[in-house]
């Protein structure tokens, strides 16, 4: 007998609560466009924040409202942009896929160690302690703050220098924000020409601390036919909109700090 009463009580409570739920759902119903949900499903979903939004949910909402460009997801690239374009029924031109690169070639072989840093193994902490791990005050510290920040395991530290694996890098730019020396930059993925030095020191000073640094001689600027490479503040930098990837600058560079195009 007892078991029947118990079952009945539970059933009655179940019906009341269930009905209350149905009513609440109807009363507080919010219309969401199913396309927004579809965009959300199309996005990679790793919530990296590289698009500038709080995460993939926020990005989907912003895209749907037209507040963010439909090709704005740097991780998804062309395929995701195309899918979102189909959902929204418009043609979307894929954004130029970007990849990060480190503007320093100062591995242990070419720079002099200056001090032995002990403490929290984090580049930002080391910079704050004011101790120069390598002789160059502009170069990579190599304690791997960028490596820890990278959600895609695309950064490795070798010989005290950060390297970015282009096949893994999605161009989210989280490492760019982390580097205390602002050494990491994003460049179009298909461009290989890159100046791997950030030293603003004059030539002789650079030579003193690193054998692979940009001395600001300006030979690359002279040899460039499209005017894409400029020396400013004793360091060369490339304008990727003008660069034709001819590779002449890399051939001419006396300290071999400009990397060659893949075809060369």
């Amino acid at each position: 007998m007892q078991i029947i009463i118990t079952t009945l009580v539970i059933l009655v409570i179940g019906f009341i609560v269930g009905y209350a739920l149905v009513l609440t759902d109807k009363k507080f119903h919010v219309d969401t466009d199913e396309r927004e949900q579809a965009i959300r499903d199309a996005l990679p979903g790793n919530n990296c924040g590289a698009c500038g939004q709080a995460g993939c949910d926020a990005m989907a909402a912003a895209m749907f409202k037209g507040e963010a460009p439909l090709n704005g997801c740097p991780v998804g690239g062309a395929s995701v942009a195309q899918m979102i374009g189909q959902i929204m029924g418009v043609d979307v031109e894929a954004a130029v896929p970007k990849a990060a690169f480190v503007r320093c070639s100062g591995c242990r072989e070419v720079t002099r160690d200056q001090g032995r840093y002990v403490g929290i193994m984090d580049c930002r902490a080391a910079v704050q302690a004011g101790l120069n791990v390598t002789s160059c005050v502009f170069g990579c510290i190599g304690l791997g703050s960028c490596q820890k920040a990278c959600p895609h395991d695309a950064i490795v530290i070798q010989e005290g220098l950060a390297h970015i694996l282009p096949q893994k890098c999605v161009g989210c730019g989280l490492c760019v924000k982390t580097c205390p020396r602002a050494l990491i930059e994003l460049k179009p993925r298909d461009r290989q020409v890159a100046v791997r030095c950030m030293s603003h020191d004059r030539g002789p000073l650079v030579k003193k601390v690193c054998t692979a640094g940009c001395i600001g001689c300006g030979l690359c600027e002279k040899v460039c036919e499209s005017g894409a490479i400029k020396v400013e503040g004793n360091v060369a930098s490339v304008n990727y909109e003008l660069c034709t990837q001819c590779g002449k600058c890399a051939e001419k560079c006396p300290s071999k700090v400009i990397t060659l195009p893949r075809s060369a």
């Binding site: 200056q114 001090g115 302690a129 004011g130 101790l131 120069n132 791990v133």
Partner: peptide, 8 residues
């Protein structure tokens, strides 16, 4: 305690 470590 409060000093700054020097590399040079």
């Amino acid at each position: 305690m409060m000093g700054i470590a020097m590399s040079s």
